[in-house]
Amino acid sequence: MDEGFIPYQQSLEDEEQSIKSTQSVIEQAIAWFRAHSMFVLAYGTGCGAIEMPPTFTSRYDIERLGVVGVATPRQADILIVSGYCSPKTLKRVIRSYEQMSEPKYIIGLGSCTINGGMYWDSYNTIKKLDDFLPVDMYVNGCMPRPEALIEGFVKLQEKIRANSSEAGYIQYRTRYAHYRANQERLFGTQVQPRYEENFAGMNL
């Protein structure tokens, strides 16, 4: 009896007890709302995009966890990098990620984002996504089934509710020089505008 809504609800309540000790009531409420309204940018880079329609539609119905697809990065909280990523695609992915408003999270879906997968010796795919962007959750497999993706979302919910300072978007601000150096090394002269101009006036 570990499936269905009631045990899921039970698990949420159990976690609430552990989180309560470190967060104020307001923080807990905000984190709870965040974790239960994850808007995913409707964007697929590789073959993993094939697994997303069944995840979102009636059979697996991830909307019961508050996960909805949105059409523009400005409204999105979560970017799923779904599979292999060529340098040309990565430029678009970075652009999309930088346009998203914070807090924002990245899920790396499939082996290709982790270590290149079956494209480990390809001249046109990147091997480590977290060199270029801060990844919050990896879902491995080739391809991961929708159940695996849902598991990834559940783990990400836990992470969001813990409201850690290790979250990817904070990493991307504080360690921007590291990510930028890797991007410049890969793209050469065709690099994006600098992201840090977006948060120049912010008190970090």
């Binding site: 390809s122 091997k127 480590k128």
Partner: peptide, 25 residues
């Protein structure tokens, strides 16, 4: 922005290119 020899020509060494341009985990 490709500035190497075209990749499908057989003298192109794919593995050497990958080792030079990408980091492995």
């Amino acid at each position: 922005g490709w500035c190497d020899i075209p990749p499908m020509r057989r003298e192109f060494d794919t593995l050497a290119y990958v080792n030079a341009h990408y980091d492995f985990r």
